[in-house]
Every structure is written in structure tokens, then in C-alpha cells.
Design a binder for these strands. Structure first.
Lengths: 301, 301
DNA sequence: TTCGTTATCAACAATATGTTTATAAATAAG
DNA sequence: CTTATTTATAAACATATTGTTGATAACGAA
């Protein structure tokens, strides 16, 4: 027996004053309503209604139960409606984790526009380059850059992330512009700590060597720093276009060996579940998807 | 799905922080708990828990739902316990309908003793000689005297009610004491409006005739009046012993034609249902049953 | 009375329930 | 780093329950 349905039946019978009318109201058969009420009575061990075929009278217990059952039912309805609204209206706090450099440069306008479209959604943006555990740490969405290994999480690809080798015109004038990967050997590599372009790539060897052998080399876990260093003429950096793009467009950096550009990585939105997604999350993903497109503005140089 | 059980499962999972422990607590299988929670989620259209195999985290919706669901569940539990108490403790107002003359003479001591045994039960005693509709008028019990025709009500026989023909010694001295029914013809009959001793009885003819033909006869719907009239020498009355008994014992009335005494009627407690009886009602019936016995004190003369 | 209405009962087919068995994922231990 | 253990879920299945249908009994009204 579904006690909630039984309670609903009982309350309907009391309100309508008849099993048949209650059944009409609940769009079911009088037989079922009768069954529900008797089951409820048996469950409670108390007679709720004195019924003749012609008239119904509440017992004392019935009166009390009716009172409180109605309250409980409206509570439940309220509760479910509230959740329904939460679901359809896209409200609540959206907790997002995002990579530091990307967020600083490109997330502000997106978030601002998103909030215009969904005023009831609050945003908590946590910048973090480590791989957060979105379930454990309570994030709704994590934006990630890289080649994602499969996991139980859902990852939606939002935009390509191109990596380019670049250096300042001054630096190139001074040290020469490499035309082939082999020529990189003597150059300074501004290394990003977590860079991984995959094995087998022509640049891979140099990249690894750069980190281990070169003297006076520079390593950072922040791409902005490396790009700034490259602009200042400190060496050659392999960095995503969403960081270097602006400097390239302004002529402060030159792209080197474009024909050897690594496979593009991608920007992903990572979230926990595909089904029963809160609509604030669903809404955000739909919103971000297509915001940058396959040729993002930061690649226009 | 029983939504209440599902809610209980969800709340248990949140409280215990694990499906398996929740299942232990609810004495069911983890599989079922899992099923319940997912059904609840599907029903609500919202994900309540983010679950990895190792840890559980509430979603925003889950937090809200948990809060309110716990409230609803305790409400329901309270409600049912309250009804349970009502059931076992015998409390509330007991509404009794009883015949006027009987109640006046014999009910006060009974009720007083009953209330000593069940202090939490209040009594509303309505005296009425008409046949009340106990369901319609909201009585818990009706005491009735007579030969009950079957009905959907339950009637419990509490005591025999003997009817005796009686008159005052003075009257009998003046008009003679009848020895055979035929001799009644010339006597005055103090008639009770609702008297019915059934067809075929030797006295039946005289009783009917008494109502229709005799001049100067007396009719009343109250037995006390008729007994008082008989004591005053107004004629012969056919009245129950619980009214006339006292006068007989005191010698104010003499019993006539005892060998023609009609089949005894009975005192019944009539109530609506045999099952799921409120314990105040159950208690009263048990109490009254046997209080008077097969040879009630009013028959001792 | 007889009729229409109403609650309930009984029986059945459709559905749902809870159990069992198996699988995948995540941590802990060796 | 692999193996074990714990945990949640999925699939499959026997059993119980549900809601429907048709029939019954009781009350009121004409």
C-alpha cells in the first residue's frame, strides 16, 4: 500500500463526503478508494469512518487523522513543488571549478552573460589547476583543459585548445628562428609543469630535455608567467593560444614551427551525471557549449 | 512505490552516510534501498545524492529534500503514535444514547464506576426513547430495550428485561384480581405507547383493545408515569421490572397473572462495528456486559 | 413495496516488489 | 602496482500487490 495515496484517498473521501465522488476526484474507482481507506484503517488499527451506504461520519480518531493528514499532504506537495521549481527554474548556487589562467582571461564575460540569462543562479567560481574531485568537493561543474582520460564522469567538449610554440621577435632576432625541430636544441624552453602533448610527437624529445638539462631554464605551473617571460625575451614557450593569442595578435610574440603544432587539446566541462541533472547545471552546460565555438576568438591572430 | 518508505530510505541513507548501513538500519537489502532512492529521484525528477561507490554527497536539492522529508516523516510517526495511544488508552468522549426510564433509575451507578476505571473517558449521555441513528447522530453506543430486529449494527445483549402486569393492592381489592387473561377485559389498561410483546401471545388481544376501545384509559410514552399511575390505583400496567420492581418489592404493586408473563425482552448495547472499535467503546461494552447479569437486582422481589 | 445509489466483496490480470546473482568502480592492503 | 574488499548499481526472476471488473448487500427515496 502506498500510504500517501491512501491518505490522499481518505482526505478526499472526507472532503467530498462520499467514496464515489472522491473516486471521481482522484480519477480512480470507488472500489479502490474503499480498499485504500480500509487498508489505512487496518494499518492504523483504528476505524476512521463510520459508513453506511448512504452517509459517512468521521469517528473521533478519523477527525484527528484527517486534520493532520491534510497537513502532511500539503507539506509533501509543497516540498515536491518546490523541488520542481528548483528543477525547472534553474536556481541555486552553481559551484564551478576552473583552471586559473583560462578563467582569468576568458570566463568573466561568459559568466556575466550567463547570469543575465539565469538571474536566479548564483555562481561560486573556484580557480584551481589541480584536478579537483568534483563529487567530493561538491562542485557542480569543473572546466578542464587537456586530453581527458575516461572516467565515470561526463565530459563535454566545449572548444579546441591549440598549443603553439612562440617567442618574442627580439629573442628570435638574437637567437635565430628555428625552422626544424632539431634546431630547438640550443634554445631556452619556458616549461609548463604539467605539459603533456603525448608520446611520439616530434617536439616531445626537446620538451622533456628542456626540463632536465638546459641551464638557466624556467619552469612554472602558470602559463601567464611563462608567456610574460617569453614576451620579455626569456625563451620559447609552448602555450595554449587562449593565453598567448593576444600577444601574438599584438606582435609581441611570434609563432614558431607552426607546421609542428601538437594535436589540439580541448576545453571540457566535466560533471557527474547525465540524467537528473539540476537545471542550473544543465543550463550552464548548454550555455557554455557553443559560446566559444570551434574557432574561438583567441585563435584569431 | 511507497513514497513514505522511499523517503524513509533516503533519509536513512543521508543519516547513515551509506546505502549499506541504511539498509541494515531499515532491515532490508542495500539493493532495495538503492532502488528506492533512485525511484524517488525519478519521481521527483531531481538527483538527490551524488554517489561514488565510496562516498555520498547530497546535492542542493537533496539537502532541501532531506530537511523537509525528515519533518514529514516525524509528523507521520507522531500522528500514528497519537492514534495508537488513543486506541490503547481509552480516552476521548463516549457518546451514549439510552432509554429515559432505564437510564434515570439504573445508569448512574454504572457510569460512575466506569469512569473510575477509565478516568480519561468523558461521557455524554443522551436520554431518548426514540430509536436514534447512532451513526448519523454520532453516538458511540446506544442502549436499547426490546426485541431487536437484525440490522447492520452490532447488538450485544446485556441483561433480560422482564415485563410484568401489575396493579396496586387497593385497585385489585376494588376491581378484583384477574386469574385468567379473559378476565382482563373489564380492567383499565395503563398503556405504554411503544409496547409490543409480539403476535400470538394470550395478552396481545387485550393490550390492543385496551388502546383502542376502553374509555378513560391512559396512554403514555413514559413507563414511570404509568407505574406511578398504577401505584395510585389507576389500573393495570404492563411494565418492565426495572421500573416496577422497586414498587413491587415495597408492596405498592402486585404482580398479576405471572404465569402469562410475556417472553422477556432484553437490554442491548448497540454499536456500529465489530472491528477496529475505539477502545473507549470496547471498554464500555466489556464493562457493561455482566454488570447487571442474567438476574438483575431489579428482578429481586 | 421497488428502484436507484452507494459501499464493499471476490476474482483476476497486470504490474510492482523484493530477492538473488552478477558487474563495475573506488579505496585499502600487501 | 597489483590484489582484495567494500560499495553501489544493474539484470533477472519468483512472488505479492495493485487496480479493474462484475457481483452483492444495504440504505433511502418515490
Amino acid at each position: 500500500m502506498d500510504r500517501i495515496e491512501a491518505m490522499r484517498a481518505f482526505v478526499a473521501v472526507v472532503n467530498e463526503g462520499s467514496f464515489t465522488r472522491a473516486a471521481d476526484r482522484l480519477e480512480t474507482s470507488p472500489q479502490l478508494v474503499s480498499k485504500y481507506v480500509s487498508q489505512l484503517e487496518t494499518h492504523l488499527g483504528v476505524r476512521l469512518l463510520n459508513r453506511t451506504t448512504r452517509r459517512l461520519n468521521l469517528t473521533e480518531a478519523g477527525t484527528q487523522y484527517h486534520q493532520r493528514a491534510r497537513q502532511v499532504l500539503t507539506d509533501i506537495d509543497d516540498m515536491e513543488h518546490q523541488l520542481g521549481d528548483l528543477q525547472t527554474q534553474a536556481q541555486g548556487l552553481l559551484r564551478i571549478s576552473a583552471p586559473v589562467s583560462f578563467a582569468i582571461r576568458h570566463l568573466a564575460p561568459l559568466l556575466s552573460e550567463f547570469q543575465k540569462a539565469h538571474p536566479a543562479v548564483g555562481i561560486d567560481l573556484q580557480l584551481n589547476d589541480r584536478k579537483v574531485d568534483i563529487v567530493e568537493e561538491g562542485f557542480d561543474i569543473a572546466l578542464r583543459i587537456g586530453h581527458l582520460k575516461s572516467s565515470s564522469l561526463i565530459a563535454k567538449r566545449l572548444a579546441p585548445v591549440r598549443l603553439v610554440l612562440c617567442a618574442s621577435p627580439d629573442y628570435l632576432k638574437q637567437h635565430g628562428t628555428p625552422r626544424r625541430p632539431e634546431e630547438l636544441g640550443h634554445h631556452r624552453y619556458l616549461q609548463y609543469s604539467y605539459m603533456d602533448i603525448g608520446p611520439g610527437h616530434p617536439l616531445q624529445k626537446w620538451l622533456q630535455a628542456g626540463g632536465q638539462e638546459s641551464e638557466g631554464s624556467m619552469v612554472s605551473n602558470n602559463g601567464d608567467v611563462l608567456v610574460e617571460a617569453a614576451i620579455a625575451g626569456a625563451g620559447i614557450a609552448l602555450q595554449p593560444t587562449f593565453i598567448a593569442g593576444n600577444a601574438i595578435r599584438e606582435g609581441k610574440l611570434k609563432v614558431i614551427l607552426p607546421e609542428y603544432e601538437p594535436q589540439p587539446m580541448a576545453l571540457y566541462a566535466v560533471y557527474a551525471h547525465r540524467q537528473l541533472l539540476a537545471s542550473k547545471v544543465r543550463g550552464f552546460i548548454d550555455f557554455v557549449d557553443g559560446f566559444f565555438g570551434e574557432a574561438p576568438y583567441w585563435d584569431q591572430f
